[in-house]
Design a protein around this nucleic acid. Structure first.
Lengths: 193, 193
DNA sequence: GTAAAAAATTAATCTAGATTAAGAAAATCA
DNA sequence: TGATTTTCTTAATCTAGATTAATTTTTTAC
């Protein structure tokens, strides 16, 4: 149950057996069916979730109800609304399962305790957030600077496994175009080859 | 010299006088004239800089040499290429002064030492990065979901002081349009009132 | 196995914003 | 101070991608 998350943490910090036990004791398993919400806009995010099985989408809705996907997450990813979680204020993100999903949940209270008792975790999460930050920066730049076709190919290259698990309309949302336009782009790509 | 940076750090962690001395000893002052580079794409970022005076732009160039501004920074802001800094690998960001600027520089070596000797700093920077992350997330969403006019007004509201210090073409780049189009937007806004 | 729902495609029309080019205004500098 | 550089504006033309709407294909669920 904890193999994946232990390996995840071990990438940046090393823990003693007793620290590991303490960490495990703070987690609880959550199982969700497909199309269920982990979090909805307007709510306070009380958890950081580590996916051990399944796939979710993390998105924002605009006034007209259009989804804008911030990211997909599969096994070995942490999910949550970072700013809502750390400030414990209502956020704007929706988190919804795309497949039946299992997560190890770390709630806010426990995360504060964790940082206090094992400050090394501060480092682990700093590094994770840092990575997300530079990924988002690159993506933001590409969305402004590169045409949809290039962004689509980039997505396939970067997340080949995700690309096979989520419907195309969600990929369209992720790269920032309508499903109709992505369809056109794909058509053009097929002809090219 | 250290008032501003001490207040900045005190927002999230409290330091003893000796910790503060250690911190100060790791910083050095850097003065730059207008239009000078702190960092160029392709270089490794060896510093985190805290601005005590002046203004910089942080941007990426595309293939055609167009600037895409990631953010402006003025007094009381930290600047750097986060991913290049923490991974000590070549990055893509350019950092260039827009005004004569003074910064307190913390180099990579010292920052590692700082985290080791005063782990509380790990927390301070985690919180800063977290904030940048959620700001960037909001901005990314708005750039996809909202029209240029709204983004421009949002910028003026959020950074009124910056708006008065930087030329309009840079604001155009920040909100993700050409200077010509921003000019048009502004013209339309004037007529509206 | 079939009906219903969800996803993907195609095509016509439309538009926000880009591009190109030129001139006007403002800031800088010797 | 005037000359030069930088910034801003205006206008004509163009295009990537949106919108709308209809049709087909695939998936889901009973």
């Amino acid at each position: 149950m904890f193999e994946l998350i232990d390996a995840n943490v071990a990438k940046h910090i090393s823990l003693t057996p007793s620290e590991l036990d303490l960490f495990h004791s703070m987690l609880h398993l959550k199982k969700l069916k497909k199309k269920q919400f982990l979090l909805q806009g307007g709510e306070v995010c009380h958890f950081s979730g580590f996916i051990t099985k399944g796939c979710i989408k993390n998105y924002i809705l605009d006034d007209k109800g259009h989804e804008f996907i911030m990211y997909f997450a599969v096994e070995d990813w942490w999910v949550g609304d970072i700013s809502s979680f750390f400030e414990q204020k209502p956020g704007t993100l929706f988190i919804e399962t795309i497949e039946d999903t299992e997560l190890l949940m770390l709630d806010y209270h426990n995360s504060e305790k964790l940082f206090k008792e094992i400050p090394k975790f501060e480092r682990h999460f700093r590094i994770l957030i840092q990575r997300s930050m530079s990924t988002l920066q690159q993506r933001f730049f590409q969305t402004l600077a590169k045409p949809a076709e290039e962004r689509y190919l980039e997505f396939l290259k970067k997340y080949p496994n995700v690309a096979q698990r989520v419907p195309q309309q969600l990929i369209a949302s992720y790269i920032g175009v309508t499903p109709e336009f992505l369809s056109k782009v794909r058509h053009k790509l097929v002809k090219k080859v």
